[in-house]
Amino acid sequence: MDFNNKKILPLFEINGQTVWMTQSILGTWIIMAALILFTVFVNIYMRVKKFEDVPKPRSLQNVLEVAVDSMHNLVRDNAGNDLGWLGGYFFGVFVYIVCCNYAPLLKLRPPTADIATTLPLALNTFLLIHVLGLVKRKGEYLKDYVKPMFLFLPIHLIGELARPISLALRLFGNLLGGMIMIDLLYHALPLYFRIALPVPLHIYFDIFIGALQAFIFTFLSITFISEHASVEGE
């Protein structure tokens, strides 16, 4: 049993430190390539076949419309119309995390079971929270750090710094845990039981937990941003 994020190829060197292409990075590139190909396909499909005004159930158009509309509504309902433009970013984040979480179904190591993948996502959220907070609310945003009194400033700062860490570790921990559970089961089961028996665990840990964790990450990010950047009354 080996749960390590293995190194595959050396990519480049910075200050004497070799940067490797790990299983996570390879998995991310495979997912990126697949998603970019899918995006190109959708764009060609939209130009050649044209989307219909009333899409057929279970068609590609219908699935895309439901996904886009759900994300737009989620952002609009939680962060307000003012921040509705974030729908595009969170759509990308959600699709990316779901694809990463579903990678084990294709016998790939989930890239989200690596802190190097989840940390950038959490840092993006951290930057959005504070940049948008400053841009949208200016002085009011800074006043939040000294509420109800100045003594609370360190607590607020620790709370803010804990957010990206908790976001990154939650996603990482859940995916790593799921991966370890399934690997342990595969190794514990005799060879002839490995065909059908792990399927329910795959459904739970990969499909259900994968989608749930992607949703939790996205939803929490939107909520945090809304908390700091939404102007009251909007």
Partner: peptide, 29 residues
Amino acid sequence: ETLYETGVQWLNTIILTVLLAKFLYKPVK
């Protein structure tokens, strides 16, 4: 090493989210 890998993954994340937002989410929306 993790820091550099995080940098690579950050770049990947930004490229992918921007592409998905601009060329998938935006046209459908």
